[in-house]
């Protein structure tokens, strides 16, 4: 019952944020600003995590298939596909849920408890659309790019592991990452990332928008929104993988 209540309210809020903007130029500028705040500022952490994950996947795969009948280049291939299919999207999305999601819900939550949202409403501004729509646009547009970046850097991380830690020979690794490459995987990842981006913008926005109380509640809402985002991301992952890959 409570779930239905929240889902209805969430649905309404998302609907409200998609209504016609008062002034398109302002929304455009805000979307650019959000791309900077939410997307560009996440480049560093995404790059860092991807390089390590790429390296670790390569090492673990090599460690697990020490078998003379399996050629070494398959390790490169496995690392590449793991990165492309799962880590560059779901793993990165979970990290972004923590970084971007919590910042969205605390920003909007603070605006709620300090009556800034009321002030917007009084002026006749549609606060939901003014605050949430630019974030949705920024994330939906930028997160797939982050995923692609993460793939590139992750594969590069695996190569670094080969060079620095002597896991397999770099030549075998390169052969592996070029072997039986399926471009559809990139498309699949981008589609997943668009869904994740939507979740990471709207779920925290919902939690922030309906905060009641003070700064303590804002903190709680932000924690809660990260938990819900993570659960949703993983469930959507299962559904989309079933729909797109099987």
């Amino acid at each position: 019952m409570r779930f239905l209540y929240h889902f209805g309210k969430y649905y309404q809020l998302v609907g409200k944020s998609f209504s016609k903007p008062e002034k398109v130029s302002i929304y455009y500028r805000r979307a650019l600003k959000e791309i900077e705040l939410l997307g560009i500022n996440s480049l560093g952490i995404v790059a860092l995590i991807s390089v390590f994950i790429g390296a670790v996947i390569t090492m673990q795969t090599a460690y697990n298939i020490e078998n003379p009948f399996i050629p070494d280049y398959l390790i490169g291939l496995t690392a590449r596909d793991t990165m492309l299919l799962e880590f560059s999207t779901t793993m990165i999305a979970l990290i972004l849920a923590g970084k971007v999601g919590s910042s969205i819900s605390s920003e909007i939550g603070t605006m709620r408890v300090t009556e800034q949202i009321d002030a917007l409403e009084i002026m006749g501004v549609n606060s939901a659309s003014y605050l949430i729509l630019p974030k949705i646009i920024a994330n939906v547009f930028f997160f797939p790019l982050l995923a692609i970046l993460s793939m590139v850097i992750g594969v590069f991380g695996g190569w670094l592991a080969c060079i620095l830690l002597d896991v397999i020979s770099p030549e075998d690794y390169i052969t592996g990452i070029r072997y039986a490459f399926i471009p559809y995987y990139i498309y699949y990842s981008c589609v997943k990332m668009v869904f994740y981006a939507f979740i990471i913008s709207t779920v925290p926005a919902y939690h922030g928008y309906y905060v009641e109380g003070g700064s303590l509640e804002v903190g709680k809402a932000s924690t809660r929104s990260v938990v819900y985002c993570s659960i949703l991301i993983l469930s959507v992952d299962v559904v989309l993988t079933q729909l797109l890959l099987s």
């Binding site: 002034k23 300090t114 009556e115 800034q116 009321d118 002030a119 002026m123 006749g124």
Partner: peptide
């Protein structure tokens, strides 16, 4: 309607000038 809230409710991501200009920008 112009409204002044008990806690001022200025937009804290905008500076003073942008705050006052906000309704003008919007409408």
């Amino acid at each position: 309607i112009g409204m002044i809230f008990q806690g001022s409710a200025l937009f804290d991501s905008l500076n003073v000038q942008q705050n006052v200009m906000f309704p003008l920008d919007m409408f």
